[in-house]
Simulated assay, not measured.
Amino acid sequence: MARTKEFDERKALDAAMQLFWEKGYEATSLSALTERMGLQRSSFYATYGDKRSLFTTALQKYSETRIAYLKAKLQGHASVRESIKSCFKDIIDIAYQTNPSFGCFCVNTIVELAPHDSQFSQITSRYQEQLQILVRQALEKGILAGEFSRDLDALAVSHSLIIFMNGLLVTLKTKPERQFIDESLSMMFQLLK
Rank of each mutant, 00 (worst) to 15 (best):
Arg3Glu: 15
Thr4Val: 08
Lys5Trp: 01
Glu6Lys: 11
Arg10Trp: 04
Ala12Ile: 02
Met17Pro: 00
Gln18His: 05
Phe20Cys: 06
Gly24Cys: 03
Glu26Met: 01
Ala27Leu: 07
Ser31Tyr: 10
Ala32Tyr: 00
Ala32Met: 09
Leu33Pro: 04
Leu33Phe: 05
Thr34Val: 15
Glu35Met: 08
Leu39Glu: 11
Thr47Ile: 01
Thr47Phe: 02
Tyr48Ala: 04
Gly49His: 08
Ser53Glu: 13
Phe55Pro: 03
Leu59Cys: 08
Gln60Trp: 02
Ser63Trp: 04
Arg66Phe: 08
Ile67Thr: 10
Ala68His: 14
Tyr69Thr: 12
Leu70Asp: 11
Ala72Glu: 15
Leu74Pro: 07
Gln75His: 15
Ser79Ala: 14
Val80Tyr: 12
Ile84Cys: 04
Ile84Leu: 12
Ser86Lys: 05
Ser86His: 08
Lys89Asn: 12
Lys89Leu: 07
Asp90Cys: 00
Ala95Ile: 02
Ala95Gly: 14
Gln97Phe: 05
Thr98Ile: 05
Ser101Lys: 00
Phe102Asn: 12
Phe105Cys: 08
Phe105Ile: 06
Val107Asn: 13
Ile110Met: 15
Leu113Met: 15
Ala114His: 09
Pro115Glu: 10
Thr124Glu: 12
Thr124Gly: 12
Ser125Asn: 05
Ser125Val: 00
Ser125Met: 06
Arg126Glu: 12
Gln128Ala: 15
Gln130Glu: 15
Gln132Cys: 10
Leu139Ile: 04
Leu144Trp: 00
Ser149Glu: 07
Ser149Trp: 03
Arg150Glu: 12
Leu152Glu: 09
Leu155Lys: 11
Ile163Asn: 14
Phe164Pro: 01
Met165Gln: 14
Asn166Ala: 05
Arg178Ser: 06
Ile181Glu: 09
Met187Glu: 07
Met188Ser: 09
Leu191Glu: 08
Leu192Gln: 08
